[in-house]
Structures are given as structure tokens and as C-alpha cells.
Amino acid sequence: MKAKTFHENIFTLQQGKKRFLATRNLSPGLEVYGERLVQVEQTEYRVWEPKRSKLAAMLLKKLPSPFTNTSKVLYLGSATGTTVSHVSDIVQQGVVYAVEFSPRTMRDMLPICEERPNIIPLLADASKPGSYANVVEPVDVVFQDVAQPDQASIALSNVQHFLKPGGYLLMSIKARSVDSTAKPDTVFKQQLKTLLEQDNSKLELVKKQKLAPLHIDHLGVVARKTE
């Protein structure tokens, strides 16, 4: 098997005709959620399943990756930490602030945080950035994957408080969570409008891409903070 660099610290593994997305394991020997561990030339990689991770799907759908080895990341909606663990692999020298609202899923994520020194768990409500503002530092990337009807405004308020100028917002808009009866395209338009067209938004769209068929009715969005 061969490993190729896909983006900084994100790799693709080639096995015959099959190609997998993978990250370098920050805690070698340990898997997080039952994913495959692959050894290539003394480095251990963790296979990253795009059907289970919106972020992996976004990268495979050719959205740019803003992550570097030392990025500081604010991750909203970390759930049980499967994608967070890959982000923690990517920003090996950086920090991931993982915000999750549900105590039940946070309970499953805590063991992962204990294995990985760069994940900071925050059991808090992403729609109230003030409740974790005394912990989180200015970040390079805000990633958001929450199932809330006011997704875009939650993202915006976090971007305004925490994202450095020139930093990137990555989000996956879940049409079905915003409005289960409206047409997905209408929802995407309306959410993007909230995100980009408000006076104080300071965000410019870099790229957007639907995540079907990996994730149905999801839109991946990358935006940059201008000032």
C-alpha cells in the first residue's frame, strides 16, 4: 500500500484500484471508533470513512483544506468524536476545541480526549459562544456540523467571536435539520444568505459543494473571514 499527501497532514492510501482517505495516527496503536489502522513505512494511518464524516466527504468533494500542522480549530458539534479524532490527527501540533451540547454523546468522547493531548472538550451550547469565551483562543479554522434550524447564525456568531481575520469557516448545512419540509435548495440559499449577506458578516464564500451521495441533503461550505 502507498501513501500520498492529499492536503497537509491528510493522505490517500492506494490499494490496488481502491483509494482511501487517511490521517496519521496521533496515538499509535489505538483506534477510536473501529476504523482500520494501516501501517505504511513505519507510519500508522487511520482510514477515514467519508460516509461517516462530513469533513472527509467535503475534502473528497474537492473543497479546499485550511488545516495545517499547527492550526487552532474550533469544532462545533463534535458528537462522539469520530471526526474530531481525525482533525486532531491533522493538527498534530495544534489544538481542537470540541464543543458538544449533549452530555450523552460527550460521555463517549471523553476517552478520546484523554488519549489525545490536543483535544479540549467543552460541554456547552454552540449557540451561546459567551459560555466558552473564557476558554477558547482566537482560532484559524471554525468547523461546524450541528443539527440546528439556525445553523448559519450559530456559525456566524462563533466566527465573529473566535475566528482570526483570514481564517476559514467550514460547515456542512443539513437541510433536513433546518427545515424538514422545505426543498433543500431553498434551505441552502436561505442559510447562505444569513451567513454571507449580513452587514457585519465579514465572510466571503470560497467554495460550496453538495455532499450527495455521501451525505444526502447536505451542502459543504468553505468561507473566509476578510478582516
Binding site: P103, M106, L110, E114, N118, I120, P121, L123, V135
Partner: peptide
């Protein structure tokens, strides 16, 4: 700093889960 921050956040999260 980060080591203390992580320990603190894990401890706080544990407390919060326990009271939830």
C-alpha cells in the same frame, strides 16, 4: 498551558455530565 487547560476541561466536563 494546554496540558492544564485540557485537564481542567476534562474535569469540568466530567462534573457536568455527572450532574446532567
Amino acid at each position: 498551558y494546554y496540558s492544564l487547560l485540557q485537564q481542567t476541561c476534562i474535569a469540568a466536563t466530567r462534573l457536568k455530565i455527572k450532574n446532567s
